[in-house]
Amino acid sequence: MIALLMRDLRLAMRAGGGFGLGLAFFLIVVTLVPFGVGPETGLLARIAPGILWLGALLACLLSLDRILALDWEDGSLDLLATSPLPLEGIVTMKALAHWITTGLPLVIASPLFAVLMSLPGAGYAPLVLSLLLGTPALSVIGTFGAALTVGIKRGGLLLSLLVLPLYVPTLIFGAEMARRGAEGADTTTPMLMLAGISAGVIALLPFASAAVLRVNLR
């Protein structure tokens, strides 16, 4: 399974692998928002947590259809399914690889982008922590969506429609935690909810993803 993770990371780094795609998209969203709403620092500071979270979520969404579709197209998904690796492990590694190539760079880069959004100083640590806790859930839920739509040509739209409603709780608690942090309020409740959502989906969704993948491979 480590071999699968290493292969996916290596593929993401090679030409056309899509590493940095999410990060570039995130950067574009965050730089364009001040142009759209005007350079007023107070307003930007107020909407910064929400915009940063929304940007991160959309950046995640952008690369979801690559998680399983590429392996399905070249036949390696069939071969992996008949290999000694359990499908539950395969989808978990796929989600982990997606998080390392998309979620983790967003977490690391978010303080820099928060400067562009004039986020108040107190909000940096809660923002990074909320993204660190929330983005794994985005990758795992996204892998479930990718498993549902694998085998559908141009399934990207359907995938977005399926996955976006499932992203709502993560977005609500993630942005709430970042907002409360920026205002200097207590962030414990949204943080616990966010951590709970992530832990829950990481524990349960790989089984659902593997089950739908088995049906879709028939």
Partner: peptide
């Protein structure tokens, strides 16, 4: 099924990995 390996029409190769990397990956998986 633990004694079986399947080869389909598609070879399951990754275009950006070298021949050696492709084979080493499957050797590690199995």
């Amino acid at each position: 099924r633990e004694t079986m390996t399947y080869a389909a029409h598609a070879d399951g190769l990754k275009a950006t990995l070298t021949v050696e990397e492709n084979l080493s990956f499957w050797a590690a998986v199995f």
